[in-house]
């Protein structure tokens, strides 16, 4: 086996994955909880990446879908006692349906206007939650007493034993990475990237641009809703404050700084933005200031992010005989 760039890269990914999985054994509960937060934001970043990275839609209201998933879980679990993990698909579906309804009329707006409208959307959702819409969201106090998830009858408490919750989240993260990797390399993913880089050419090639954009929105929202379920099960208490506009900004920064459209980039972004401030506790108050400066500097010096996606290559010697058309 030669040490080509690809092998080295895969080796690094494998080493990082091993370190990640082994980490809780060596870390305190608090530190493991930080890793859990990184995992949650990594999942949110990956789901936003479908919309922002592949679809190229400037969406800054992702916290709204996250909130809807979390509230769906919280309301049904506390009212009817249905186990949290059973509600995982349902949380995704409610968020996805909401995205479908909301995104349909706004999907065709030009980039920066879409950004503003999605900010408006996340604020409306937050205000609705604070105002106890339909009398089920608990108003500004939120909902508490959500049960911990159970796996094969063993409750996994995110507060008492973050190490157990870590493996639940890691399993879901691995599943997510696999699904999104396949999605990225599928016909669907290629079409999305194509319409992102040149929507007119994509439409000319027969890609239904608005349909693809809408479906990217719904997939991203569906996933964020599922993450909301895991989040609600982790902290067992949710309130509107957890889903403010700033949460959306953090998700947005993770994707943009890490590298829009790149799975390793988004994971790195989550580690940097959520994990790094833990090492600089005394600089905690400067955290957002530094992120702001980093955003401006990145746009000027490296707009594609730290780990941008590799352009797809098609080596001639690996093509099938029948694919060569000249």
């Amino acid at each position: 086996m030669s040490f080509s760039g690809k092998n080295i890269r895969n080796g690094i990914y494998a080493a990082v994955a091993v370190c990640w999985i082994a980490a809780p054994v060596f870390l305190s509960n608090y530190q493991t909880d930080v890793l859990n937060n990184i995992a949650i934001y990594a999942l949110l970043g990956l789901s936003l990446n479908i919309i922002l990275g592949y679809g190229g839609m400037f969406h800054m209201g992702h916290a709204a879908f996250f909130a809807i998933g979390a509230y769906t879980t919280a309301i049904i679990n506390t009212s009817y006692g249905i186990p949290v993990l059973w509600l995982l698909p349902l949380s995704g579906i409610t968020a996805g349906v909401f995205a479908l309804v909301v995104a349909r009329p706004i999907i065709h707006l030009r980039g920066d206007y879409l950004l503003i409208v999605t900010i408006g959307m996340v604020e409306i959702v937050r205000i609705a939650l604070v105002n106890n819409i339909f009398g089920i969201t608990g108003g500004p106090n939120g909902i508490f007493g959500i049960a911990s998830p159970q796996v094969f009858g063993h409750p996994i408490n995110g507060i008492v034993s973050p190490g157990h919750y870590f493996y639940l989240l890691t399993a879901f993260l691995a599943f997510t990475i696999a699904v999104f990797y396949l999605l990225e390399h599928s016909r669907y993913g290629r079409a999305l990237k194509y319409l992102c880089s040149d929507s007119i050419a994509a439409e000319g090639s027969g890609i239904d641009t608005s349909g693809y954009k809408l479906s990217a929105f719904v997939i991203g929202a569906f996933w964020a809703g599922m993450v909301g379920n895991l989040y609600a099960g982790k902290i067992t208490f949710i309130s509107p404050e957890s889903f403010s506009f700033w949460e959306s900004v953090v998700m947005f920064m993770i994707v943009i700084l890490g590298g829009a459209g790149s799975i390793p980039g988004v994971l790195l972004g989550a580690i940097l933005i959520i994990g790094l401030p833990e090492f600089f506790q005394e600089l905690q108050q400067y955290r957002l200031l530094i992120f702001g400066i980093a955003l401006v500097a990145m746009m000027i010096f490296r707009p594609q992010g730290i780990l941008p996606p590799k352009p797809h290559t098609y080596p001639v010697d690996k093509l099938d005989e029948k694919e060569v058309t000249l």
Binding site: F252, L288, F291, G292, L295, M299, I300, P303
Partner: peptide
């Protein structure tokens, strides 16, 4: 640059301003 880079830069500047005021 593409206009959306400038929008992200504007967002960064906004974060810098509001946090500077806070500090």
């Amino acid at each position: 640059s593409p206009r959306l880079s400038a929008v992200v830069s504007a967002l960064g500047a906004s974060i810098v301003f509001s946090n500077t005021i806070m500090l």
